[in-house]
C-alpha cells in the first residue's frame, strides 16, 4: 500500500511537471518568441484556458502527500520554508500576469505583465529544479524528522548545506533547459508563422543545454550518492527509465530536424516522464533522504498514514482521477488545433 502511494504521489508530481511544464516553458520563451502584442496574445491564448487546471496538479499532489505521508509533508514544507514561500509568490505572480495582462489595453500595462510572466516562469522553473536537487542530495534531517535549510550557506555540498549549492543549481538549470524545450515545442505546435519559427529555433538551441546539464547532473549525482545506483542493480527493469529518457531526448532532436512539432512535444514529454520516473525509482523507498545520518531518512515505511486511511483514499482517488481524465480530455479537445485570435476582448 505504501509503495502504491509512493507511485501515485510521484505520478501526480510528474503530471504537474509535464502539464504545467509547458505553461512555464511558454513563459520562459514568451519575450523572445513573441514580439508584438498580437503574437503575445497568441502564446497566452495557447495556455490561457488550461494553465489553472494544470497548476491544480501540484495542489492535488501536495494534498495527497499530506494525507498519505503526513510527516514528509510537514517536514519538507517547513524545512524548505523560504524557497517554498518564494515559489508561492512566483506562482502567484505568474497566475496574475496571465489573468491581468489582457484586462487593460495599454502598452505599458501589457509590457509590465509580459516581463513579469517571463521572469516568474523562469525563476519558478529554476527553484523547482533546485528543490528536486535537494531531495536527491538529501537534507540534514534530525532524529524527530525535521530540519531547516537556509537559502544558501557556502554553495558547496557540505553537511550544513543550503537550498542552493553548486549541485542543486545544476538541477535548476536542467529544469530550465528541459522545460524550455517542452514549452517551445508546445507553442510551436499551437501556433503558426513567426512565433512558430522562433519557438522551434528556441527548442533546438535549448536542446543542447538539456544534453550538457543532464550529463553533468547525472554524473555528479552518482559521484555524490553512489547508493542511488542500488535499485538499478537490484531490479534491471529500472534501466527502462534511462533508455526511455535517451529515446525521448533523441526524439526531440530528430523531430526538431524534421520540423514535426507535435512529435517533438511528445518526445519531450517522454523525456520528462522517464527522467522523473527514474528519479523516483532510484530514491525508493526514501521520500526524504538524510544527508547526515542515514537512519534518520524519512521513508515510506516510517511515515505512511494508517492502512485504513490509505485504503479509503485509494477508492476516492480512483473515482477522482477518472473524472479528472474526463475533464482534461474534454477541455483539450475543445481547444485543440492551432490557436486563433478571437475578435473583441475575449480571450487573453
Amino acid at each position: 500500500m505504501e509503495t502504491l502511494w509512493f507511485v501515485l504521489v510521484s505520478f501526480m508530481l510528474t503530471m504537474y511537471v509535464v502539464l504545467d511544464g509547458f505553461d512555464l516553458g511558454a513563459g520562459i520563451i514568451h519575450l523572445y518568441a513573441a514580439k508584438t502584442d498580437v503574437e503575445r496574445r497568441l502564446i497566452l491564448n495557447a495556455i490561457g484556458p488550461v494553465w489553472d487546471g494544470n497548476e491544480v496538479w501540484i495542489l492535488a499532489a501536495g494534498g495527497t502527500l499530506y494525507f498519505a505521508f503526513p510527516l514528509v509533508y510537514a517536514s519538507s514544507f517547513s524545512g524548505f520554508y523560504l524557497p517554498l514561500i518564494m515559489i508561492l509568490w512566483l506562482l502567484m505572480s505568474r497566475g496574475l500576469s496571465i489573468e491581468f495582462r489582457h484586462q487593460v489595453d495599454n502598452p505599458l500595462w501589457r509590457n509590465f505583465w509580459d516581463v513579469m510572466f517571463s521572469l516568474s516562469s523562469g525563476l519558478l522553473v529554476i527553484f523547482l529544479g533546485a528543490a528536486l536537487g535537494n531531495v536527491i542530495r538529501g537534507v540534514p534531517l534530525s532524529k524527530d524528522g525535521y530540519f531547516f535549510e537556509p537559502l544558501w550557506t557556502t554553495f558547496t555540498v557540505v553537511p550544513e548545506s543550503g537550498i542552493l549549492d553548486w549541485y542543486t543549481v545544476i538541477f535548476g538549470l536542467v529544469a530550465l533547459f528541459t522545460l524550455t524545450v517542452h514549452g517551445s515545442s508546445y507553442v510551436a505546435m499551437k501556433t503558426e508563422g513567426d512565433v512558430q519559427t522562433r519557438s522551434r529555433f528556441a527548442a533546438g538551441k535549448a536542446w543542447w543545454g538539456v544534453m550538457a546539464t543532464t550529463i553533468a547532473g547525472i554524473t555528479t549525482t552518482f559521484a555524490l550518492r553512489p547508493e542511488l545506483l542500488n535499485n538499478f542493480t537490484k531490479h534491471y527493469w529500472g534501466l527502462l527509465f534511462p533508455l526511455a529518457a535517451l529515446l525521448g531526448l533523441s526524439g526531440v532532436w530528430y523531430h526538431f530536424r524534421k520540423g514535426q512539432d507535435t512529435r517533438m512535444f511528445l518526445s519531450s514529454t517522454l523525456f520528462i516522464l522517464a527522467m522523473l520516473g527514474g528519479t523516483a525509482f532510484a530514491l525508493y523507498p526514501n521520500l526524504l533522504t538524510s544527508s547526515t545520518d542515514p537512519s534518520a531518512s524519512l521513508t515510506i515505511h516510517n511515515t505512511a498514514a494508517q492502512p485504513y486511511g490509505l485504503g479509503v483514499g485509494l477508492s476516492w482517488w480512483i473515482v477522482g482521477m477518472v473524472l479528472v481524465s474526463g475533464y482534461f480530455i474534454y477541455v483539450y479537445r475543445s481547444f485543440r488545433g492551432k490557436v486563433a485570435l478571437p475578435t473583441e476582448d475575449a480571450g487573453y
Binding site: 492535488a60 494525507f67 509533508y73 498514514a305 483514499g313 477522482g320
Partner: peptide
C-alpha cells in the same frame, strides 16, 4: 494530517 489531509486532498481532486 492523517485525517484532514484526506479532505484537503479531496478538495483538490
Amino acid at each position: 494530517g492523517g485525517v484532514i489531509g484526506q479532505t484537503l486532498a479531496m478538495e483538490g481532486v
